[in-house]
Design a protein around this nucleic acid. Structure first.
Lengths: 296, 296
DNA sequence: CGGTTCAATAAGTAATTCCTATCGATCTTT
DNA sequence: AAAGATCGATAGGAATTACTTATTGAACCG
């Protein structure tokens, strides 16, 4: 008997419908049927009657099922409580600093932090906004932060990461730009633009970008009018019309007025993808950090 | 979090020693370490301190571990109780007839039945001793019994089985026989014996036996002086010195005085093996029967 | 300083679980 | 009454997960 089976059973008992229960549990219906059958055969007892002799096809709890449901719910409840308790005790006086930069819309970040606090109410969370994806990784190595929301690739051997989402490239434009109205922007249309770029820590994807540009018939080498050191500065320069910039499509630019991001359209199959991740020091396998990583 | 992890954790907490705990749980030590680590990282809490700074290397529960142990034990206890309860309710007024023949030493049979009764106290168990392995399977098809302890192969398409042990061949001899003193018996030494055999339902293994005998330079065809219909009769005839007989090594002949079974030694790799099994009607997937099958 | 004990790690294998596709049966609709 | 729709069971293959053996690394002991 495993908790998974109890969760499945309780959900089916609540819905009295395999299809709906499976959807709620985010598994397929056959997986559900199978686990219920496994549970029944371990218990040696039928938990459901699949009444088809009456007019209406129905899934009904047997008497034994009703009795077992109460126990199953108690077990599930207790298990949740046990986790909560052990976390309350074990995570006391611990503190975790989470570093990030604006690669998440604020609501996603907030929801992550809320889940952190909910699961580990005793842990002190600190948030550190950092200017670039590279700064996040450097802060991890310097142990200024314990956990970082950043992008692949990892730039230090001591780091480990778990990816949690990816996206393509977008073009950050002044709202007044003549391309800002279109749903997306073709690379070729950008041949004669001026560019702003994050300088100090160049992401390797910029090599790929240059390569794509050359395939599209132009180069950005001479057209980068300004290099900046943070995403915030970058957005401001774009909004002022100093130049435009490539940014990951999941970047949050909404807090800067006058800037819009439009997906980049590239001819051919060469689609640049950028991967978001939670990163941490590999040699620090503290269970607390692992649990937090899993939460993201 | 799964019950397996709770069981592992509770055992390690009791032993405070991974190696011993693993042995008790019948898993390898790395599997145990791994599951404990998984549990810790799901909880986000360290459950054990692996104290090595003191003189003695020790595995010690952390404070959080101590707290969690209590909950884990409560959960395990409750789960056992829930199973017991649901069986008590669900298996009421059911009855199961178990057919067998003397292929098990009585103590093994008793221990199986005891486990049945312990797990399903409300179920009426009936025991039916049948003369041959074939009779057990026929009784299953005729639905005289619900579950049968017998041997492979299955002789009816409607039957399903789960094997639970196997053995080789032995020779049943009168206690006074000159070979009865040896630890085992070579096939060649039996060339001039008289034989007794179970007749009506010939097990296919007897073909193999005949083949082996011919390889050893003799045949039993003319030497079978008596065919009988049950194992009991067979034993009696052997004890009276009418002839000797081949029997599976796991047969129980101890209740018949004056008969001993000695393992057969066959030259070459052709070792006859016989497989014991629990058999039941395949089209009857009643959870109760499945649970009983799993108990064997 | 070698030998021993014990848990952690690594890598490959075995076992589960899960998913897609399909079936069989019932109920509804035309 | 026949065709479609609904719903759970089944089958077969893919992916994940747990387990095993072999090895490493750290601490203790002679």
């Amino acid at each position: 008997m495993e908790f998974r089976q109890l969760r499945y059973f309780a959900e089916v008992a609540a819905e009295l419908h395999y299809g709906r229960a499976a959807a709620k549990l985010c598994v397929s219906q056959p997986a559900l049927s199978q686990q219920i059958q496994l549970l029944e055969s371990e218990l040696g007892v039928e938990l459901f009657d699949h009444v088809q002799r009456t007019r209406q096809r129905k899934v009904v709890l047997t008497e034994a099922g009703t009795v077992f449901l109460a126990d199953a719910q108690r077990l599930l409840h207790l298990s949740r409580q046990a986790i909560e308790t052990v976390r309350r005790v074990g995570a006391q006086q611990k503190s975790v600093a989470l570093g990030y930069y604006q690669l998440l819309r604020p609501d996603r970040l907030v929801s992550i932090v809320q889940r952190f606090r909910q699961s580990f109410p005793e842990v002190q969370f600190q948030l550190r906004e950092l200017p670039t994806f590279r700064a996040v990784q450097e802060a991890l190595v310097a142990e200024t932060i314990d956990l970082g929301l950043t992008m692949l690739p990892l730039l230090h051997a001591e780091l480990a990461a778990r990816p949690f989402g990816q996206g393509g490239l977008a073009v950050a434009l002044p709202a007044a730009h003549f391309l800002a109205g279109a749903p997306d922007v073709a690379l070729e249309a950008l041949a004669h633009e001026k560019w702003v770029e994050i300088s100090r820590p160049l992401h390797p994807v910029y090599d790929e970008i240059e390569h794509l540009c050359q395939q599209a018939g132009f180069s950005r080498r001479g057209a980068i009018v300004q290099e900046v050191s943070s995403l915030e500065l970058l957005s401001n320069l774009v909004s002022l019309g100093i130049g435009i910039a490539f940014v990951p499509s999941f970047f949050d630019l909404s807090q800067v007025p006058g800037v819009v991001a439009r997906p980049l359209r590239v001819a051919g199959p060469e689609n640049v993808t950028l991967t978001q991740c939670v990163a941490y020091l590999a040699e620090r396998p503290a269970p607390l950090l692992q649990a937090l990583v899993a939460l993201v």
